[in-house]
Each structure stands twice: as C-alpha cells, then as structure tokens.
Design a protein around this nucleic acid. Structure first.
Lengths: 191, 191
DNA sequence: GTCTATAAATCGATAGAC
DNA sequence: GTCTATCGATTTATAGAC
C-alpha cells in the first residue's frame, strides 16, 4: 500500500508501568507536566524515584507513553476516515472518533491538547506531527479559506476544551458524547 | 448598588513592571508557567533575577499580574452583560466581549484558559472565581440542562482553544473575531 | 534599580546493594 | 523491582553593596 506508515505503537505495558502511567496522568492533569516531578509520581505510588526510573529512564518516556494512549486511537480514527469514499463522510467519521476518545479519556485528552509542555513535546515528535497533518487535512475537507480554518480550529478547541470544563464534569460519557456530536454537526451543517 | 463588588484592579504598572509582564507572557505561552523560571524571565530582559524580585516578590505575583490583564476586561464584559434587560441580549454582549479579549490578547488568553498552573491559581483566587460564576450564569441564561451545560462548555472551549490554533495563527484580529462570532452565533441559534 | 553572592530546597538522573 | 545514597544542575528567594 503506497504511503502506508507503521501504526503508532502502544507497546504492551507491565503492571508496574501501567500504574506509573495512571498516576502520571492524574498528576499531569492536575499540576501540569512541568509542575509534576518524578518524586511526586513516586510518592503517589508509595515507592521511590529509583523504582520509577527502573521502568522509564527519562521523564520524556513517561510523557510519550501518556501521549501514545490517545494518539494511537486518534490515528486509527484518521485511517478509518481516509478510507471513506466521500470526504464529507470521512470528516464525520473522524469527528466521531475524536469525540469518542476525548470523552472516554477526558483527563489525557485535556493534557494532550492543553499542556504547553505536551504541545512542545508533540511538535518535536515527527510521527505525531504526521498524524496531526493528516487529521487537519481530513477536517479541512479540501477547503482552506479563513472560514474553514476557523471552523476546524473551533472543532479542535471544542473537543479539547469542552470535555474538561467543570460544567460537564459530572456528565456521563454517553450523554457528553451525544450532545457534543450533535452540536458539532450543527456547526458543520452551517458551512 | 446591592451586591456591587470592587472591580478587579489593574494597578498602574511601572515601565520595569510592564517589561517583566510582557516577557513573562511570551515565556508562559511558549514553555508553560511551570516551565518558566524567574531566571528565564531575567535572561529575556538582560537583567538578573534579583532585579526581577525587586519588582515582584514572588512568582505568584507575576502570574497574578498576567491574569489581571485579561480578567479585568472579562469582568467588564460580564458587568455590561448583566446590565442588559434581556438575558438573550446579555449573553450576546458577553460572548462578543469574550471573543474580543481572547482575540486581541491571544497569547494571554491561551495561558489563562489552558495552563494547568494558571487554572489551579485561579481556582484558589476568590475574586476570579466570583467573576467566573457570574460569567457562567449569564452564559447559561437560567437554563441548567445537560444540553445547556455542554453548550456553555463548548463556547468556552472554542474561545480559548480556537484563538491559539496553528491554523488561525496568521489570521488578523478582525477576520478571526468576525468568523468566530458568526459561528458561535450559529451554535446558539440551534438551541 | 541593578548588581554579586549565597542559602536552602528540589530537580532529573545514576550507582550499586539487596 | 525496590531500595539508599548521591551527583550536579537548577529552583525560589534573600542579604547587602553600589
């Protein structure tokens, strides 16, 4: 297949690694990546820093592992969208996929889209840049007017911003997903 | 006037203080607040840390000064919105004001809405919490259904997220403002 | 207002025992 | 896999001279 790329890896994690990533996500979303030290992660797990370093040799590896959770699913959504015959239908599929993962992994999605450290990190990570390029291309649907650009920026902002807003904190996944999807479609229909 | 509160202060700043805040905003938006040290701010200004400490005794005071730039304008928009007779009209006024300040001060708006350190800071700052409570009340327009909550969360997410999206980086303020306003209205009309 | 110098704490990361 | 102990760098913040 021409232009095919290896899917972003979500390598199998040991139980110890899973615990570290879970704790890291909690702390990242509350204090920011820059405000989270490896000592804090170790304390949350009741172990020492050295035990954490045994699983991940650098802080960047932890950040990468957190990012991959969401980005692997995001890439799958992009692939599915690109496989659609109609570009309109492709965009619908992608947006549904984006909303799915953002709602289900709200905390990680918030960190991924909002944390300045994560944004810088992803900007220097070529596989991720490629996914975002393809994602934006599908969302733009071949149009590049200011209006379309603002609309795509809005959609991204909605999905990243709405899911972590305090007002929807106590909404269950199913409600949040259906409301979001419906209102984003309203936005697109007005194109 | 019953319930009146003193407006959020934007105390006059010395030239030295203005330079510090300008540099801080640049660095905050690029590296995040947690990733910005006072040494970095001092380096950007070509002075030493001690010179910075002479103007602001703690890092928190710098964060507060940055926040006040946007929040003073946000509060003014809330006051204007609350003065409207119709709640529908009040919401329009508020949204227009939110978009104005977000577009004109894109970098600060991004830091204010996205940086986890700033969000924690504002959460512990009562005057700011009060402004956000009033702002949300106007945006909700007396309705508290899940649908309305998602819609308000979306609007907030749009304004904070869209203005810093790479796709609209090179749009001038006037274009971005008018497109944003128009599409947000589309969203509201579908209520 | 700006400097040098420094204190006390914490950072990311490593070595080596168990 | 987890520990203790430590390195060197960097952090916030202060003291005091100019």
């Amino acid at each position: 297949m021409a232009g095919a790329t290896k899917p972003l890896g979500s390598p199998a994690k040991s139980a110890a690694q899973t615990r570290i990533i879970d704790a890291a996500v909690d702390l990242f979303s509350e204090h920011g990546i820059g405000g989270t030290s490896l000592q804090m992660i170790a304390d949350a797990l009741g172990v020492t820093k050295a035990a954490v370093y045994h699983q991940y040799n650098t802080k960047d590896e932890i950040i990468l592992a957190v990012a991959e959770i969401v980005l692997a699913r995001l890439e799958a959504a992009v692939v599915a969208a690109e496989a659609e015959r109609s570009s309109v239908r492709g965009r619908e599929v992608l947006i549904a996929g984006m909303i799915d993962v953002a709602v289900e992994r709200r905390r990680i999605a918030g960190v991924l889209q909002r944390d300045p450290v994560m944004l810088r990190f992803l900007d220097n990570h070529e596989p991720f840049r490629r996914v975002m390029t393809r994602l934006n291309r599908v969302l733009m649907g071949g149009v590049s007017t200011p209006r379309a650009r603002v609309q795509v920026a809005m959609i991204t902002g909605i999905i990243g911003g709405a899911v972590i807003h305090p007002l929807v904190f106590d909404l269950d996944d199913e409600s949040l997903r259906s409301h979001l999807l419906k209102q984003v479609k309203t936005l697109l229909r007005a194109r």
